[in-house]
Simulated assay, not measured.
Amino acid sequence: MSPKQRRGAETVERLLDTALAVYAEAGESGVTVQALTTSSGVSPGSLYHHFGSVDGLMSALLLRWLGKLLDDVSTALARSRTARTGIRAAVRAYLAFVGEHPDAARLLHSSYADRLTMVQARQLRDSQEARLSPVAAWLERHVASGELAALPAPLIESMTLGPVVGVARRWLSVGDVDLDQAARVLPDRIWRSLEP
Protein backbone atom coordinates (compact mmCIF):
# COMPACT_ATOMS: atom_id res chain seq x y z
CA MET A 1 0.00 0.00 0.00
CA SER A 2 1.41 3.36 -1.00
CA PRO A 3 1.65 6.22 1.53
CA LYS A 4 -1.23 7.98 -0.25
CA GLN A 5 -3.42 4.86 -0.04
CA ARG A 6 -2.49 4.41 3.62
CA ARG A 7 -3.48 8.03 4.37
CA GLY A 8 -6.75 7.48 2.51
CA ALA A 9 -7.50 4.35 4.53
CA GLU A 10 -6.66 6.16 7.76
CA THR A 11 -8.99 9.01 6.77
CA VAL A 12 -11.81 6.56 6.07
CA GLU A 13 -11.29 4.89 9.47
CA ARG A 14 -11.16 8.25 11.26
CA LEU A 15 -14.39 9.38 9.61
CA LEU A 16 -16.17 6.12 10.43
CA ASP A 17 -15.03 6.22 14.05
CA THR A 18 -15.98 9.89 14.34
CA ALA A 19 -19.40 9.29 12.78
CA LEU A 20 -20.23 6.67 15.39
CA ALA A 21 -19.02 8.92 18.22
CA VAL A 22 -21.03 11.89 16.92
CA TYR A 23 -24.09 9.71 16.42
CA ALA A 24 -23.76 8.32 19.96
CA GLU A 25 -23.44 11.80 21.44
CA ALA A 26 -25.87 13.83 19.32
CA GLY A 27 -28.15 11.36 17.55
CA GLU A 28 -29.02 11.29 13.88
CA SER A 29 -29.72 15.02 13.64
CA GLY A 30 -26.28 15.78 15.07
CA VAL A 31 -24.43 13.96 12.31
CA THR A 32 -23.61 16.90 10.06
CA VAL A 33 -20.68 17.76 7.82
CA GLN A 34 -19.66 20.43 10.33
CA ALA A 35 -19.78 18.07 13.32
CA LEU A 36 -17.93 15.32 11.46
CA THR A 37 -15.16 17.52 10.09
CA THR A 38 -14.69 19.42 13.35
CA SER A 39 -14.51 16.23 15.43
CA SER A 40 -12.31 14.29 13.02
CA GLY A 41 -10.07 17.07 11.72
CA VAL A 42 -10.82 15.82 8.21
CA SER A 43 -11.73 18.32 5.51
CA PRO A 44 -15.22 18.36 3.99
CA GLY A 45 -13.61 17.57 0.64
CA SER A 46 -12.14 14.36 2.04
CA LEU A 47 -15.50 13.34 3.48
CA TYR A 48 -17.17 13.85 0.08
CA HIS A 49 -14.26 12.20 -1.74
CA HIS A 50 -14.44 9.01 0.30
CA PHE A 51 -18.19 8.75 0.95
CA GLY A 52 -20.01 11.12 -1.42
CA SER A 53 -22.20 12.50 1.38
CA VAL A 54 -23.04 12.20 5.04
CA ASP A 55 -25.62 9.57 4.07
CA GLY A 56 -22.90 7.66 2.24
CA LEU A 57 -20.74 7.78 5.34
CA MET A 58 -23.60 6.62 7.56
CA SER A 59 -24.43 3.79 5.15
CA ALA A 60 -20.80 2.67 5.26
CA LEU A 61 -20.87 2.86 9.06
CA LEU A 62 -24.01 0.73 9.20
CA LEU A 63 -22.48 -1.83 6.86
CA ARG A 64 -19.29 -1.93 8.92
CA TRP A 65 -21.13 -2.73 12.16
CA LEU A 66 -23.70 -4.99 10.53
CA GLY A 67 -20.78 -6.97 9.15
CA LYS A 68 -19.22 -7.27 12.60
CA LEU A 69 -22.52 -8.41 14.11
CA LEU A 70 -23.05 -10.97 11.35
CA ASP A 71 -19.47 -12.20 11.80
CA ASP A 72 -20.10 -12.77 15.51
CA VAL A 73 -23.37 -14.63 14.86
CA SER A 74 -21.88 -16.67 11.99
CA THR A 75 -18.88 -17.64 14.10
CA ALA A 76 -21.18 -18.77 16.90
CA LEU A 77 -23.14 -20.93 14.47
CA ALA A 78 -20.05 -22.38 12.83
CA ARG A 79 -18.65 -23.50 16.19
CA SER A 80 -21.84 -25.35 17.08
CA ARG A 81 -22.34 -29.02 16.37
CA THR A 82 -26.10 -29.21 16.74
CA ALA A 83 -29.00 -27.03 15.73
CA ARG A 84 -29.88 -26.48 19.38
CA THR A 85 -26.41 -25.34 20.40
CA GLY A 86 -26.20 -23.20 17.26
CA ILE A 87 -29.44 -21.34 17.88
CA ARG A 88 -28.51 -20.83 21.51
CA ALA A 89 -25.01 -19.61 20.58
CA ALA A 90 -26.34 -17.24 17.92
CA VAL A 91 -28.78 -15.65 20.38
CA ARG A 92 -26.05 -15.23 22.98
CA ALA A 93 -23.61 -13.82 20.41
CA TYR A 94 -26.15 -11.24 19.30
CA LEU A 95 -26.87 -10.13 22.87
CA ALA A 96 -23.15 -10.08 23.71
CA PHE A 97 -22.52 -7.83 20.70
CA VAL A 98 -25.22 -5.41 21.90
CA GLY A 99 -23.71 -5.29 25.39
CA GLU A 100 -20.16 -4.87 24.14
CA HIS A 101 -20.91 -2.28 21.43
CA PRO A 102 -23.91 -0.27 22.65
CA ASP A 103 -23.27 2.76 20.43
CA ALA A 104 -23.01 0.62 17.30
CA ALA A 105 -26.00 -1.47 18.41
CA ARG A 106 -28.02 1.71 18.96
CA LEU A 107 -27.22 2.73 15.37
CA LEU A 108 -28.05 -0.74 13.99
CA HIS A 109 -31.41 -0.72 15.81
CA SER A 110 -32.26 2.90 14.99
CA SER A 111 -35.03 4.34 12.87
CA TYR A 112 -32.24 5.53 10.54
CA ALA A 113 -31.13 1.93 10.00
CA ASP A 114 -34.76 0.83 9.61
CA ARG A 115 -35.35 3.43 6.89
CA LEU A 116 -32.19 2.46 5.07
CA THR A 117 -33.07 -1.22 5.31
CA MET A 118 -36.55 -0.63 3.90
CA VAL A 119 -35.21 1.35 0.95
CA GLN A 120 -32.06 -0.66 0.25
CA ALA A 121 -32.90 -4.13 1.59
CA ARG A 122 -31.71 -6.03 -1.46
CA GLN A 123 -28.49 -4.01 -1.80
CA LEU A 124 -27.72 -4.47 1.92
CA ARG A 125 -28.34 -8.20 1.69
CA ASP A 126 -26.21 -8.46 -1.45
CA SER A 127 -23.37 -6.53 0.19
CA GLN A 128 -23.39 -9.00 3.10
CA GLU A 129 -23.79 -12.13 0.96
CA ALA A 130 -20.40 -13.54 1.95
CA ARG A 131 -21.46 -13.41 5.59
CA LEU A 132 -25.03 -14.58 5.03
CA SER A 133 -24.28 -17.57 2.80
CA PRO A 134 -22.72 -19.66 5.60
CA VAL A 135 -25.70 -18.88 7.84
CA ALA A 136 -28.12 -19.97 5.11
CA ALA A 137 -26.11 -23.15 4.51
CA TRP A 138 -26.10 -23.90 8.25
CA LEU A 139 -29.88 -23.48 8.42
CA GLU A 140 -30.47 -25.61 5.32
CA ARG A 141 -28.22 -28.38 6.66
CA HIS A 142 -30.04 -28.53 10.00
CA VAL A 143 -33.50 -28.35 8.43
CA ALA A 144 -32.54 -31.14 6.02
CA SER A 145 -31.23 -33.29 8.89
CA GLY A 146 -34.50 -32.82 10.77
CA GLU A 147 -32.88 -30.97 13.66
CA LEU A 148 -34.74 -27.74 12.90
CA ALA A 149 -38.41 -27.29 12.09
CA ALA A 150 -39.08 -27.61 8.37
CA LEU A 151 -39.67 -23.91 7.83
CA PRO A 152 -38.34 -21.47 5.24
CA ALA A 153 -35.03 -19.87 6.26
CA PRO A 154 -36.48 -16.33 6.45
CA LEU A 155 -39.09 -17.56 8.94
CA ILE A 156 -36.47 -19.32 11.07
CA GLU A 157 -34.36 -16.15 10.98
CA SER A 158 -37.34 -14.04 12.08
CA MET A 159 -38.31 -16.47 14.84
CA THR A 160 -34.74 -16.50 16.11
CA LEU A 161 -33.84 -12.84 15.83
CA GLY A 162 -37.23 -11.20 16.36
CA PRO A 163 -37.23 -11.64 20.14
CA VAL A 164 -33.53 -10.82 20.35
CA VAL A 165 -33.94 -7.59 18.40
CA GLY A 166 -36.90 -6.67 20.61
CA VAL A 167 -34.86 -7.20 23.77
CA ALA A 168 -31.90 -5.30 22.30
CA ARG A 169 -34.05 -2.32 21.36
CA ARG A 170 -35.65 -2.26 24.78
CA TRP A 171 -32.27 -2.41 26.54
CA LEU A 172 -30.85 0.30 24.28
CA SER A 173 -33.79 2.66 24.59
CA VAL A 174 -35.49 2.07 27.96
CA GLY A 175 -32.79 0.15 29.79
CA ASP A 176 -35.15 -1.95 31.90
CA VAL A 177 -33.99 -5.32 30.53
CA ASP A 178 -31.12 -7.30 32.01
CA LEU A 179 -29.06 -8.55 29.05
CA ASP A 180 -27.42 -11.27 31.14
CA GLN A 181 -30.82 -12.59 32.18
CA ALA A 182 -32.02 -12.40 28.58
CA ALA A 183 -28.94 -14.37 27.48
CA ARG A 184 -29.83 -17.07 30.01
CA VAL A 185 -33.57 -17.24 29.24
CA LEU A 186 -34.07 -16.46 25.55
CA PRO A 187 -31.87 -19.13 23.89
CA ASP A 188 -33.89 -22.07 25.21
CA ARG A 189 -37.24 -20.34 24.70
CA ILE A 190 -36.34 -19.52 21.12
CA TRP A 191 -35.02 -23.04 20.56
CA ARG A 192 -38.34 -24.53 21.67
CA SER A 193 -40.12 -22.58 18.94
CA LEU A 194 -37.76 -24.05 16.32
CA GLU A 195 -37.61 -27.67 17.38
CA PRO A 196 -38.94 -30.08 14.77
Results as ranks from 00 to 15, higher is better:
V91C: 04
L62S: 04
E100C: 04
L148Q: 07
P154F: 09
S43V: 13
K4C: 08
S29Y: 02
G45I: 05
I87S: 06
M58A: 12
P3I: 14
E10C: 12
P134T: 08
L15V: 13
S145D: 04
V22F: 07
L186K: 07
Q123P: 00
V98G: 09
S193Q: 03
P196Y: 08
T85P: 12
A21K: 15
E129S: 09
V119D: 10
S40Y: 11
V31K: 03
L161W: 09
V31G: 07
L63Q: 00
P134A: 08
D114W: 14
T11N: 15
S110E: 11
V165L: 13
L63P: 00
V12C: 07
G52P: 06
H101I: 05
A183Q: 10
W171S: 14
S111N: 11
S29P: 02
L132E: 04
S39K: 09
R169H: 06
G30W: 00
S43A: 14
D178F: 12
Q5C: 08
D126F: 11
M118N: 04
T11W: 10
G166I: 13
V54Q: 06
S39W: 03
P152G: 08
T75L: 11
V135D: 04
R131F: 00
R81A: 15
T38P: 03
V22K: 09
A9F: 08
S53L: 01
G99Q: 06
F51L: 05
T75Q: 12
W138Y: 10
A24L: 11
H49K: 15
H101C: 13
A113H: 01
F51H: 08
R192W: 10
A83Q: 05
V165F: 09
G99I: 00
L186Y: 04
Q181V: 10
L155T: 05
L77W: 13
D126H: 14
A19P: 02
L77I: 06
V31A: 01
R106P: 07
A113P: 01
I87L: 12
T11C: 12
A144Y: 01
A168N: 00
P163D: 05
S2Q: 12
D17A: 01
T11F: 09
R79K: 13
R14N: 06
A35L: 00
S40N: 08
